[in-house]
Design a protein around this nucleic acid. Structure first.
Length: 569
RNA sequence: CGGGUAUUAGCGCAGCUUGGUAGCGCGCCUGCCUUGGGAGCAGGAGGUCGCAGGUUCAAAUCCUGCAUACCCGACCA
């Protein structure tokens, strides 16, 4: 027993009628209520049989598509020496987000949040010739990240399952090819999984590296990422990466000379707007950051926000944070709120500051601002870059149509890493002439346990989960209405055995429960096809119900068998 | 890291103000009855009241500390 058929009386499963108190989002509530998972501690979950069946199905699909593009499966260690991370420089970058421990000899060990270091080390040891390249390795592993705040059930956790792949190349063209293969494989994976997704341009973030990067997003209210997407063409990008058409330069030909006005105690843009009765788009603000220990000012319009990912990229900085009030005072010589674009620190200007034709800037003393300020006329625009988040009203960089914003769950992320890690480990191959060159790398992640949550988040109704057929824990759920009725039992057992013999994954609800309980549990569990065997068996009839559409067909037992085979194959 | 809330049976909660035998609903076990959308009746099992101190004749309840969990925020000048 077990495997592809199961009697519900034997299934390790407790469904719950009420939502657990700490579950807020639908996927978390349903996964707990339907008995897929149980929380052990913050951000750490047990997968129960039903949940694990689904996870394995997701992973099997991922594996088959990885295999199809020639990637080879390995299993890298979850436990890794800290030295590797020190060598790559990421021990510091990751900081407290990594679980760290010491072994009995006080050697420092980390639990892998990802595996670039380990796999590069492996390749460094094993690959020496161009003849061995290109090669792509992948694994499905449990990863560990000590998240500041786990949340959203299985969406942001500290221990999770992830497929990660790494490719190694002798040329950028070869990397491009594998990157495209991966991109296409990911599209096939999400199509096979039966979920709606969007591939978006992304920032490469902490993993580092140069070159392209795409994220695969499941659009959902519960998502933590913001996606900016064009309303007419297919441009879409993570907000961290999204760009817009530059705003038109303002016409300052009629702007009078600057004038100092008193603005005591205005600490925010909002206060300043109210006091001077100007819109935020006419304020020229300066935000002070510390990038790798150096103070740098960012000058942009009052209604725009600094995009820290862009700022980090422009500066090439590893660490970036806002300056504290005290640091602002000592670095720029003015209190927070009164640092102007002429402050005596390195200043970066957002390119759209040039859209201001008659602005307000803190280019005077404390508790004063200048009005009628024109960028370029009244202060120098030394370094002009795109450094802000796109906002509502911005135009698509490809087709000029308006951009719109969505929440998304990041379920996959692919990168062209370049030589970020092979530089760190001095990983080279010999070419046909015997000359050594750095190996070029790509890496490709896909969070399988997060995909599970994302599917539930996207595919449910008020009664429960609606599994896409490809990942459903079982294909057919036979609900035997009364275990006391011999005719029903006989018909149910017969169908159960025939479906199993035909290779259909089938769950038989043989519990001595009232029909309402069984129907509600079946809806909660979300198996795509339900066969109800009840008192219509007297007329030789059973009922077939589609979980997603709710469509019901009344058929003979024989017809039902044939129809079910047709539906699941 | 900061703030808030919570912690009492497997799950959801009451009890705490005003200290005195630990309760309810769901679930679970037994029996009867019932059987097409979470029935009913009867009986029953199950709790170091998060942990450690303190106050008191007496603490789930008051006080102190700690732990854990959940939520919100983490400074755009």
């Amino acid at each position: 027993m077990g495997g592809n058929w199961m009697r519900q009386t034997r299934l390790f499963l407790n469904t719950m009628r009420e939502n657990p108190a700490d579950a807020e989002i639908a996927s978390h509530q349903l996964m707990v209520r339907a008995g897929l998972v149980r929380q052990l501690t913050a951000g750490v979950y047990t997968f129960l049989p039903l949940g694990y069946r689904v996870l394995k199905k997701i992973e099997a699909i991922v594996e088959s598509e990885m295999d199809a593009i020639g990637a080879q499966e390995v299993l890298l260690p979850a436990m890794q020496p800290e030295e590797l991370w020190v060598e790559s420089g990421r021990s510091e970058t990751y900081g407290p987000d990594m679980f760290r421990l010491a072994d009995r000899h006080q050697r420092k060990v980390v639990l892998g949040p990802t595996h670039e270091e380990v796999v590069t080390n492996l390749i460094d040891n094993e690959v020496s010739s161009y003849r061995q390249l290109p090669i792509t390795l992948y694994q499905i592993q449990t990863k560990f990240r000590d998240e500041v705040r786990p949340r959203g059930g299985l969406l942001r956790v500290r221990e999770f399952r992830m497929k990660d792949a790494y490719s190694f190349h002798t040329s950028p063209e070869s990397l491009d090819e594998t990157y495209r293969d991966m991109h296409d494989a990911y599209c096939r994976i999400f199509e096979r999984l039966g979920i709606g997704y969007r591939a978006v341009e992304a920032d490469s973030g902490a993993i580092g590296g140069s070159g392209g990067s795409h994220e695969f997003m499941v659009l959902s209210e519960a998502g933590e990422d913001t996606v900016a997407g064009c309303t007419s063409c297919d441009y879409s990008a993570n907000l961290e990466k999204a760009v817009a058409v530059p705003l038109p330069a303002g016409d300052a030909s009629a702007t009078p000379a600057p004038l100092v006005v008193p603005t005591p105690g205005t600490k925010t843009i909002e206060e300043l707007c109210r006091l001077l009765d100007v819109p935020a788009s006419r304020i020229i603000k300066v935000v002070v950051y510390f990038a790798d220990g150096q103070a740098v000012g960012v000058c942009l319009r009052g209604d725009h926000e600094v995009n820290e990912a862009k700022l980090k990229a422009v500066l090439g900085a590893d660490h970036l944070r806002l300056a504290t009030a005290d640091e602002v005072l000592s670095a720029a010589g003015k209190r927070v709120g009164f640092v102007g674009p002429d402050a005596p620190i390195r200043m970066l200007f957002d390119r759209d500051i040039q859209s201001v034709s008659d602005g307000v800037a803190a280019m005077a003393g404390e508790d004063e601002h200048k009005i009628h300020v024109v960028p370029g006329r009244d202060f120098d625009l030394s370094e002009t870059v795109d450094i802000r988040n796109v906002v509502d009203g911005d135009a698509c960089p490809r087709c000029q149509s308006p951009l719109a914003f969505y929440n998304g769950i990041e379920v996959g992320h692919i990168f062209k890493l370049g030589t970020r890690y092979t530089d760190a480990f001095d990983t080279t191959y010999l070419d046909a002439n015997g000359a050594a060159h750095r190996i070029i790398m790509g890496c490709y992640g896909l969070g399988t346990s997060r995909v599970l949550a994302a599917i539930v988040e996207q595919s449910h109704d008020e009664k429960g989960i609606i599994w896409p057929s490809a990942v459903a824990p079982f294909q057919v759920h036979i609900v035997l209405v009364s275990v006391k009725d011999e005719a029903q039992v006989k018909a149910a057992e017969s169908l159960y055995h025939r479906l199993y013999a035909a290779g259909v994954e089938v769950l038989l609800d043989d519990r001595d429960e009232r029909p309402g309980v069984k129907f509600n549990d079946a809806d909660l569990m979300g198996v795509p096809v339900r066969v109800t065997i009840g008192n219509k068996i007297k007329e030789g009839q059973v009922e077939l119900k589609d979980r997603k559409t709710g469509d019901v067909q009344v058929l003979s037992a024989e017809e039902a068998f044939a129809t079910v085979l047709g539906m699941v194959k």
